[in-house]
Write a protein that binds this DNA or RNA. Sequence first.
DNA 1: GTCTTTTACATAGCAAGCCATGAAAGAAGA
DNA 2: TCTTCTTTCATGGCTTGCTATGTAAAAGAC
Lengths: 152, 152
Amino acid sequence: MKEDSKPYKWPSRTDSLGYMVNWAARLFAREMDEALRPFGLMSGQLPVIFALADGKTRSQRELVNLAAVEQSTMAKTLSRMERDGLIERKPDPNDRRSTTISLSPLMSVRLPEVAAAVAVINARSHTHLSEEEGERLLDLLHWAIKGLAERP
Amino acid sequence: MKEDSKPYKWPSRTDSLGYMVNWAARLFAREMDEALRPFGLMSGQLPVIFALADGKTRSQRELVNLAAVEQSTMAKTLSRMERDGLIERKPDPNDRRSTTISLSPLMSVRLPEVAAAVAVINARSHTHLSEEEGERLLDLLHWAIKGLAERP
DNA sequence: GTCTTTTACATAGCAAGCCATGAAAGAAGA
DNA sequence: TCTTCTTTCATGGCTTGCTATGTAAAAGAC
Protein backbone atom coordinates (compact mmCIF):
# COMPACT_ATOMS: atom_id res chain seq x y z
CA MET A 1 0.00 0.00 0.00
CA LYS A 2 2.30 2.72 -1.24
CA GLU A 3 -0.33 5.38 -0.73
CA ASP A 4 0.01 5.16 3.04
CA SER A 5 3.75 5.10 3.05
CA LYS A 6 4.24 8.47 4.72
CA PRO A 7 4.77 7.48 8.33
CA TYR A 8 2.88 9.83 10.60
CA LYS A 9 1.91 13.41 10.86
CA TRP A 10 -0.57 14.56 13.46
CA PRO A 11 -2.39 17.66 12.36
CA SER A 12 -5.18 19.26 14.26
CA ARG A 13 -7.97 16.88 13.23
CA THR A 14 -6.26 14.34 15.47
CA ASP A 15 -7.34 16.50 18.39
CA SER A 16 -10.95 15.61 17.64
CA LEU A 17 -12.21 12.71 19.69
CA GLY A 18 -14.80 11.86 17.06
CA TYR A 19 -12.19 11.62 14.34
CA MET A 20 -9.78 9.56 16.40
CA VAL A 21 -12.41 7.15 17.63
CA ASN A 22 -13.69 6.64 14.12
CA TRP A 23 -10.19 6.05 12.85
CA ALA A 24 -9.41 3.55 15.56
CA ALA A 25 -12.66 1.70 14.91
CA ARG A 26 -11.93 1.41 11.21
CA LEU A 27 -8.43 0.15 11.86
CA PHE A 28 -9.76 -2.43 14.28
CA ALA A 29 -12.37 -3.59 11.80
CA ARG A 30 -9.87 -3.81 8.99
CA GLU A 31 -7.35 -5.82 10.96
CA MET A 32 -10.01 -8.07 12.40
CA ASP A 33 -11.47 -8.70 8.97
CA GLU A 34 -8.09 -9.75 7.69
CA ALA A 35 -7.36 -11.95 10.68
CA LEU A 36 -10.80 -13.58 10.49
CA ARG A 37 -10.80 -14.18 6.75
CA PRO A 38 -9.39 -17.71 7.09
CA PHE A 39 -12.44 -18.58 9.17
CA GLY A 40 -14.95 -17.02 6.81
CA LEU A 41 -15.83 -14.43 9.42
CA MET A 42 -16.01 -10.66 9.49
CA SER A 43 -15.67 -8.21 12.32
CA GLY A 44 -19.35 -7.37 12.59
CA GLN A 45 -20.10 -10.96 13.48
CA LEU A 46 -17.82 -11.05 16.48
CA PRO A 47 -20.31 -9.72 19.01
CA VAL A 48 -22.74 -12.45 18.01
CA ILE A 49 -20.13 -15.17 18.17
CA PHE A 50 -18.93 -14.21 21.60
CA ALA A 51 -22.43 -13.75 22.89
CA LEU A 52 -23.13 -17.35 21.90
CA ALA A 53 -19.73 -18.70 22.89
CA ASP A 54 -21.03 -20.28 26.09
CA GLY A 55 -23.05 -22.71 24.01
CA LYS A 56 -26.40 -21.37 25.14
CA THR A 57 -29.07 -20.09 22.80
CA ARG A 58 -30.13 -16.48 22.71
CA SER A 59 -33.00 -14.63 21.13
CA GLN A 60 -32.36 -12.02 18.48
CA ARG A 61 -33.43 -9.38 20.94
CA GLU A 62 -30.86 -10.46 23.46
CA LEU A 63 -28.17 -10.27 20.81
CA VAL A 64 -29.32 -6.77 19.88
CA ASN A 65 -28.87 -5.68 23.47
CA LEU A 66 -25.48 -7.32 23.80
CA ALA A 67 -24.11 -5.89 20.58
CA ALA A 68 -25.71 -2.47 21.08
CA VAL A 69 -26.78 -2.25 17.45
CA GLU A 70 -30.18 -1.59 15.95
CA GLN A 71 -32.55 -4.46 15.54
CA SER A 72 -32.47 -4.20 11.75
CA THR A 73 -28.69 -4.39 11.72
CA MET A 74 -28.74 -7.55 13.78
CA ALA A 75 -31.43 -9.07 11.58
CA LYS A 76 -29.30 -8.70 8.49
CA THR A 77 -26.12 -9.84 10.19
CA LEU A 78 -27.85 -12.97 11.44
CA SER A 79 -29.26 -13.67 7.99
CA ARG A 80 -25.78 -13.63 6.52
CA MET A 81 -24.40 -15.75 9.33
CA GLU A 82 -27.13 -18.31 8.86
CA ARG A 83 -26.53 -18.29 5.12
CA ASP A 84 -22.83 -18.98 5.77
CA GLY A 85 -23.51 -21.76 8.23
CA LEU A 86 -22.14 -19.95 11.27
CA ILE A 87 -25.30 -20.04 13.34
CA GLU A 88 -28.54 -21.98 13.54
CA ARG A 89 -32.01 -20.66 14.18
CA LYS A 90 -34.86 -22.67 15.62
CA PRO A 91 -38.36 -21.48 16.31
CA ASP A 92 -38.95 -20.48 19.92
CA PRO A 93 -41.64 -22.82 21.28
CA ASN A 94 -42.75 -20.20 23.81
CA ASP A 95 -43.09 -17.27 21.43
CA ARG A 96 -43.98 -17.73 17.81
CA ARG A 97 -42.57 -14.31 16.92
CA SER A 98 -39.11 -15.28 18.03
CA THR A 99 -36.35 -17.73 17.16
CA THR A 100 -33.60 -19.14 19.31
CA ILE A 101 -30.11 -18.68 17.95
CA SER A 102 -27.04 -20.77 18.60
CA LEU A 103 -23.63 -21.34 17.10
CA SER A 104 -23.37 -24.04 14.46
CA PRO A 105 -21.36 -27.10 15.48
CA LEU A 106 -18.64 -26.16 13.01
CA MET A 107 -18.35 -22.69 14.48
CA SER A 108 -18.27 -24.05 18.00
CA VAL A 109 -15.35 -26.24 17.12
CA ARG A 110 -13.43 -23.35 15.63
CA LEU A 111 -14.12 -21.00 18.50
CA PRO A 112 -10.72 -21.34 20.17
CA GLU A 113 -8.90 -20.50 16.96
CA VAL A 114 -11.14 -17.52 16.39
CA ALA A 115 -10.57 -16.29 19.92
CA ALA A 116 -6.82 -16.60 19.39
CA ALA A 117 -6.93 -14.61 16.17
CA VAL A 118 -8.95 -11.89 17.88
CA ALA A 119 -6.49 -11.82 20.76
CA VAL A 120 -3.62 -11.19 18.36
CA ILE A 121 -5.25 -8.05 17.00
CA ASN A 122 -6.17 -6.85 20.44
CA ALA A 123 -2.58 -7.34 21.48
CA ARG A 124 -1.43 -5.31 18.48
CA SER A 125 -3.57 -2.41 19.65
CA HIS A 126 -1.83 -2.57 23.02
CA THR A 127 1.69 -2.65 21.61
CA HIS A 128 2.49 0.81 22.88
CA LEU A 129 0.30 0.70 25.96
CA SER A 130 1.12 -0.62 29.39
CA GLU A 131 -1.46 -2.67 31.21
CA GLU A 132 -2.56 0.32 33.28
CA GLU A 133 -2.76 2.49 30.19
CA GLY A 134 -4.94 -0.08 28.47
CA GLU A 135 -7.32 -0.15 31.40
CA ARG A 136 -7.31 3.61 31.59
CA LEU A 137 -8.19 3.85 27.91
CA LEU A 138 -11.13 1.52 28.39
CA ASP A 139 -12.28 3.51 31.39
CA LEU A 140 -12.08 6.84 29.60
CA LEU A 141 -13.92 5.41 26.60
CA HIS A 142 -16.60 4.20 28.97
CA TRP A 143 -17.18 7.76 30.14
CA ALA A 144 -17.15 9.22 26.66
CA ILE A 145 -19.75 6.65 25.60
CA LYS A 146 -21.85 7.45 28.61
CA GLY A 147 -21.81 11.14 27.75
CA LEU A 148 -22.92 10.42 24.20
CA ALA A 149 -25.51 7.82 25.10
CA GLU A 150 -27.46 9.80 27.66
CA ARG A 151 -29.63 12.18 25.67
CA PRO A 152 -29.96 15.44 27.54
CA MET B 1 -36.35 4.34 21.44
CA LYS B 2 -37.80 2.10 24.08
CA GLU B 3 -35.49 -0.75 23.18
CA ASP B 4 -32.51 1.07 24.69
CA SER B 5 -34.29 2.07 27.81
CA LYS B 6 -32.36 -0.22 30.18
CA PRO B 7 -29.77 2.11 31.63
CA TYR B 8 -26.37 0.43 31.73
CA LYS B 9 -24.84 -2.89 32.39
CA TRP B 10 -21.19 -3.51 31.68
CA PRO B 11 -20.52 -7.12 31.02
CA SER B 12 -17.17 -8.47 29.97
CA ARG B 13 -17.35 -7.45 26.33
CA THR B 14 -16.88 -3.90 27.54
CA ASP B 15 -13.37 -4.93 28.48
CA SER B 16 -12.54 -5.34 24.81
CA LEU B 17 -10.94 -2.27 23.29
CA GLY B 18 -12.18 -3.21 19.84
CA TYR B 19 -15.76 -3.43 21.02
CA MET B 20 -15.64 -0.19 22.98
CA VAL B 21 -13.98 1.79 20.20
CA ASN B 22 -16.50 0.51 17.69
CA TRP B 23 -19.36 1.39 20.00
CA ALA B 24 -18.04 4.88 20.61
CA ALA B 25 -17.54 5.44 16.89
CA ARG B 26 -21.11 4.40 16.13
CA LEU B 27 -22.49 6.65 18.82
CA PHE B 28 -20.46 9.56 17.50
CA ALA B 29 -21.65 8.95 13.97
CA ARG B 30 -25.25 8.63 15.02
CA GLU B 31 -25.24 11.82 17.06
CA MET B 32 -23.35 13.72 14.40
CA ASP B 33 -25.75 12.56 11.72
CA GLU B 34 -28.65 13.83 13.74
CA ALA B 35 -27.01 17.16 14.51
CA LEU B 36 -25.99 17.64 10.88
CA ARG B 37 -29.31 16.68 9.33
CA PRO B 38 -30.56 20.30 9.25
CA PHE B 39 -27.60 21.13 7.03
CA GLY B 40 -28.06 18.18 4.69
CA LEU B 41 -24.78 16.73 5.89
CA MET B 42 -23.68 13.37 7.25
CA SER B 43 -20.82 12.42 9.50
CA GLY B 44 -18.68 10.86 6.80
CA GLN B 45 -18.48 14.19 5.03
CA LEU B 46 -16.99 16.04 7.98
CA PRO B 47 -13.36 15.24 7.27
CA VAL B 48 -13.78 16.64 3.77
CA ILE B 49 -15.53 19.75 4.97
CA PHE B 50 -12.92 20.56 7.57
CA ALA B 51 -10.08 19.78 5.20
CA LEU B 52 -11.50 22.40 2.83
CA ALA B 53 -12.57 24.84 5.53
CA ASP B 54 -9.64 27.16 4.91
CA GLY B 55 -11.07 27.99 1.50
CA LYS B 56 -8.24 26.40 -0.43
CA THR B 57 -8.67 23.67 -3.00
CA ARG B 58 -7.35 20.16 -2.49
CA SER B 59 -6.93 17.20 -4.76
CA GLN B 60 -8.83 14.01 -4.09
CA ARG B 61 -5.58 12.35 -3.12
CA GLU B 62 -4.88 14.98 -0.49
CA LEU B 63 -8.34 14.42 0.96
CA VAL B 64 -7.72 10.69 1.06
CA ASN B 65 -4.59 11.24 3.13
CA LEU B 66 -6.29 13.69 5.47
CA ALA B 67 -9.33 11.50 6.09
CA ALA B 68 -7.29 8.27 6.25
CA VAL B 69 -9.84 6.36 4.19
CA GLU B 70 -9.39 4.30 1.06
CA GLN B 71 -9.37 6.09 -2.23
CA SER B 72 -12.54 4.38 -3.38
CA THR B 73 -14.38 5.49 -0.25
CA MET B 74 -13.39 9.09 -0.84
CA ALA B 75 -14.38 8.89 -4.49
CA LYS B 76 -17.90 7.86 -3.60
CA THR B 77 -18.21 10.35 -0.76
CA LEU B 78 -17.14 13.19 -3.06
CA SER B 79 -19.60 12.07 -5.72
CA ARG B 80 -22.45 12.35 -3.26
CA MET B 81 -21.22 15.68 -1.96
CA GLU B 82 -21.00 17.06 -5.45
CA ARG B 83 -24.46 15.71 -6.23
CA ASP B 84 -25.77 17.51 -3.14
CA GLY B 85 -24.06 20.78 -3.96
CA LEU B 86 -21.67 20.70 -1.02
CA ILE B 87 -18.46 20.82 -3.02
CA GLU B 88 -17.27 21.82 -6.48
CA ARG B 89 -14.79 20.03 -8.69
CA LYS B 90 -12.76 21.66 -11.41
CA PRO B 91 -10.25 19.98 -13.68
CA ASP B 92 -6.67 20.39 -12.56
CA PRO B 93 -4.84 22.31 -15.32
CA ASN B 94 -1.54 20.71 -14.38
CA ASP B 95 -2.68 17.11 -14.35
CA ARG B 96 -5.49 15.85 -16.48
CA ARG B 97 -6.02 12.83 -14.24
CA SER B 98 -6.89 15.01 -11.29
CA THR B 99 -9.52 17.52 -10.21
CA THR B 100 -9.32 20.30 -7.67
CA ILE B 101 -11.97 20.24 -5.00
CA SER B 102 -13.38 23.12 -2.97
CA LEU B 103 -16.37 23.90 -0.82
CA SER B 104 -19.42 25.29 -2.58
CA PRO B 105 -20.22 28.93 -1.75
CA LEU B 106 -23.35 27.82 0.09
CA MET B 107 -21.37 25.39 2.23
CA SER B 108 -18.75 28.01 2.96
CA VAL B 109 -21.39 30.33 4.29
CA ARG B 110 -22.83 27.67 6.55
CA LEU B 111 -19.48 26.55 7.87
CA PRO B 112 -19.71 28.36 11.21
CA GLU B 113 -23.08 26.82 11.99
CA VAL B 114 -21.79 23.38 11.07
CA ALA B 115 -18.75 23.84 13.26
CA ALA B 116 -21.00 24.86 16.13
CA ALA B 117 -23.20 21.79 15.72
CA VAL B 118 -20.14 19.55 15.69
CA ALA B 119 -18.81 21.25 18.80
CA VAL B 120 -22.02 20.46 20.64
CA ILE B 121 -21.64 16.73 20.04
CA ASN B 122 -17.99 16.81 20.93
CA ALA B 123 -18.88 18.55 24.16
CA ARG B 124 -21.46 15.86 24.90
CA SER B 125 -18.75 13.23 24.62
CA HIS B 126 -16.73 15.15 27.20
CA THR B 127 -19.58 15.53 29.68
CA HIS B 128 -18.04 13.17 32.18
CA LEU B 129 -14.41 13.94 31.33
CA SER B 130 -12.21 16.68 32.71
CA GLU B 131 -9.98 18.56 30.33
CA GLU B 132 -6.97 16.48 31.31
CA GLU B 133 -8.94 13.29 30.92
CA GLY B 134 -10.03 14.33 27.44
CA GLU B 135 -6.45 14.94 26.43
CA ARG B 136 -5.36 11.69 28.00
CA LEU B 137 -8.02 9.81 26.05
CA LEU B 138 -6.83 11.33 22.79
CA ASP B 139 -3.25 10.47 23.64
CA LEU B 140 -4.04 6.87 24.52
CA LEU B 141 -6.10 6.48 21.34
CA HIS B 142 -3.13 7.81 19.42
CA TRP B 143 -0.97 5.00 20.72
CA ALA B 144 -3.59 2.34 20.11
CA ILE B 145 -3.93 3.52 16.53
CA LYS B 146 -0.20 3.51 16.10
CA GLY B 147 -0.01 -0.07 17.29
CA LEU B 148 -2.71 -1.14 14.84
CA ALA B 149 -1.39 0.86 11.92
CA GLU B 150 2.18 -0.39 11.94
CA ARG B 151 2.06 -3.81 10.36
CA PRO B 152 4.62 -6.06 11.99
C1' DG C 1 -63.60 -12.04 25.11
C1' DT C 2 -62.54 -8.10 22.24
C1' DC C 3 -59.68 -4.06 21.40
C1' DT C 4 -55.48 -1.63 21.88
C1' DT C 5 -50.77 -1.41 22.76
C1' DT C 6 -46.45 -3.39 22.91
C1' DT C 7 -42.96 -6.44 21.34
C1' DA C 8 -40.23 -9.33 17.86
C1' DC C 9 -38.67 -9.55 13.39
C1' DA C 10 -38.30 -8.53 8.46
C1' DT C 11 -37.52 -5.47 4.62
C1' DA C 12 -36.35 -1.43 1.86
C1' DG C 13 -33.30 2.21 1.04
C1' DC C 14 -29.28 4.86 1.90
C1' DA C 15 -24.34 6.08 3.63
C1' DA C 16 -19.80 4.84 4.28
C1' DG C 17 -16.41 1.39 4.89
C1' DC C 18 -13.51 -2.16 2.51
C1' DC C 19 -11.15 -4.90 -1.54
C1' DA C 20 -10.29 -5.75 -6.31
C1' DT C 21 -10.08 -4.17 -11.02
C1' DG C 22 -9.56 -1.17 -14.74
C1' DA C 23 -8.67 3.15 -17.56
C1' DA C 24 -6.01 6.97 -18.52
C1' DA C 25 -2.39 10.25 -17.76
C1' DG C 26 2.13 11.30 -16.20
C1' DA C 27 7.01 9.98 -15.21
C1' DA C 28 11.10 7.43 -15.98
C1' DG C 29 14.38 4.42 -18.45
C1' DA C 30 16.50 2.40 -22.38
C1' DT D 1 11.02 7.91 -29.04
C1' DC D 2 8.89 4.05 -27.07
C1' DT D 3 8.08 1.07 -23.46
C1' DT D 4 7.31 0.32 -18.80
C1' DC D 5 6.11 1.77 -14.26
C1' DT D 6 3.58 4.76 -11.22
C1' DT D 7 -0.09 7.58 -9.96
C1' DT D 8 -4.99 9.33 -10.08
C1' DC D 9 -9.37 8.32 -10.19
C1' DA D 10 -13.73 5.50 -11.20
C1' DT D 11 -16.54 1.37 -10.64
C1' DG D 12 -18.51 -2.97 -8.99
C1' DG D 13 -19.52 -5.89 -5.22
C1' DC D 14 -19.75 -6.76 -0.53
C1' DT D 15 -20.63 -5.75 4.83
C1' DT D 16 -22.21 -3.11 8.49
C1' DG D 17 -24.48 0.72 10.14
C1' DC D 18 -28.69 3.69 10.31
C1' DT D 19 -33.90 5.22 9.75
C1' DA D 20 -38.48 4.16 8.51
C1' DT D 21 -42.09 0.99 7.71
C1' DG D 22 -44.75 -3.12 7.88
C1' DT D 23 -46.53 -7.73 9.86
C1' DA D 24 -47.64 -10.90 13.18
C1' DA D 25 -47.83 -12.45 17.79
C1' DA D 26 -48.18 -11.53 22.68
C1' DA D 27 -49.80 -8.86 26.55
C1' DG D 28 -52.90 -5.59 28.78
C1' DA D 29 -57.17 -2.99 29.32
C1' DC D 30 -61.90 -3.04 29.80
